[in-house]
Simulated scan of single mutants.
Amino acid sequence: MTTTYNTGTISVSNGSTTVMGVGTNWIAGGILPGDDFRAAGLTVEIASVNSATSITLARAWPGAGQAAANYSIRLIDEGERSLAALNEIISALGSGNLSSFAGLEGASNKMAYFTGAGTLAVADLTVAARALLARAAIEQANPTDATAGRLLAVGAFGLGATVLTSVTDLNAALLNGWYSYGLSALNRPFVNGGTVLVLSPNASRVAQIAIEHNSGKIATRYVSEAPPASGVWQPWDEFVTASTLNGFVSVEEITVADDAVGVVDLPGSRTSAMAIIQTSLASNGDVQNVNCGVVMLDAGPSPAGFSVYSGTSFSVTSTTLTGTSGTDGRTTVAPKTSGQLQIENRGGASRKYRVTFL
């Protein structure tokens, strides 16, 4: 049987879905979604009952605003409400979803899924997959979250990150991954900041490779005590690269005519060096091992040269060379006080000399 509720008064604005009551008790009155709200000759379905004095309409109030106005709510008969629910079920069945679901053959470790509109199929759902779905958190909480079984997020441990996780003490960077460090970071290998790659094969060994940002210099170190957090780190070892060798290793080439002297500057402002001197004929490039040698040089105020290795036609002296100072048929080298190396060629033909300074 349909009944009506009209206790109290209501207020509602034009275009609003909120109805406020005074002296109403819509919860106790049994008002439910689907009942009809009526005022000023208009009827709108109720979407929800929020409290004893507040309801929400299913659509905006189309009439003029009402203040402290009379109203009535038509409570839908339970038979009508049941019929409406049944119609919804019939509509759902008509979509094919329930009939398709009913046609599936259930089995252990299977799950249903849609393959299209109104069609379903079954797929495997393993024990491991169910355990993963049951987890409260399946993704990392932060880029360095090392909780077992969690999925890696983008940027985890520096992988694919546009901004690396920063560390303030390189001794504390123990988890595998890429990190950044700044000018004030403790235990950094160089003056400036950079990035550090952490490699940890097990619980008792950690290695780090650090790269300084503005120079590209590289250094490495390791700790091999368990646990690494309380171990003693080995000193940083800098990698030998072309940039770090600049000024320490230098290669010069010079062609010296027969009975002439060529001069090569020592690298940088150095006045001492080890020089590896190789020679070949300028005409065809044939290497002349007998005219090669390795020399320790002092090109300071008191020039001196000492042969480490000499070919049979290679000599070292400490005097100024003129082109005919040395023995005919030989190559003679000597340092000069100006930080230079003299090379005298008396081999009978023009020669090309390659000098590697160490």
Results as ranks from 00 to 15, higher is better:
Ala153Tyr: 07
Ser16Trp: 03
Asp145Thr: 10
Arg354Thr: 13
Ile138Gln: 13
Pro201Asn: 05
Ser230Val: 12
Leu98Gly: 04
Ala156Tyr: 12
Ala141Arg: 06
Val19Leu: 05
Arg351Lys: 14
Tyr181Lys: 01
Met111Gln: 15
Arg150Pro: 01
Leu75Ile: 14
Arg81Phe: 09
Leu321Ser: 04
Gly311Tyr: 08
Pro267Asn: 08
Gln66His: 03
Gly29Leu: 09
Ser338Ala: 14
Thr255Leu: 06
Thr317Ile: 12
Gly79Leu: 10
Gln140Pro: 05
Ser315Lys: 08
Pro228Asp: 06
Asn87Leu: 07
Leu159Cys: 06
Thr271Pro: 01
Val261Glu: 07
Ser224Arg: 10
Ala334Lys: 04
Leu57Lys: 02
Val290Pro: 00
Ala67Trp: 06
Ala257Glu: 11
Ser272Thr: 15
Ser272Cys: 12
Asn176Gln: 10
Ala134Leu: 12
Asn25His: 10
Asn291Ala: 09
Glu344Tyr: 09
Thr165Phe: 03
Gly326Asp: 04
Ile55Tyr: 02
Ala129Gly: 08
Gly285Lys: 06
Ser95Asn: 11
Thr3Gly: 04
Leu321Trp: 05
Ser180Trp: 04
Thr165Asp: 04
Ala161Arg: 00
Leu321Asp: 09
Asp258Met: 09
Ser230Asn: 11
Ala304Tyr: 13
Pro227Leu: 13
Arg330Cys: 02
Pro143Asn: 05
Thr319Glu: 12
Ala257Asn: 12
Gly106Ile: 11
Ser313Phe: 10
Asn87Thr: 10
Thr319Lys: 00
Ala229Gly: 10
Gly21Gln: 07
Ser51Ala: 13
Val19Ala: 03
Thr255Lys: 11
Ser166Thr: 15
Met20His: 09
Tyr181Thr: 01
Asn202Trp: 10
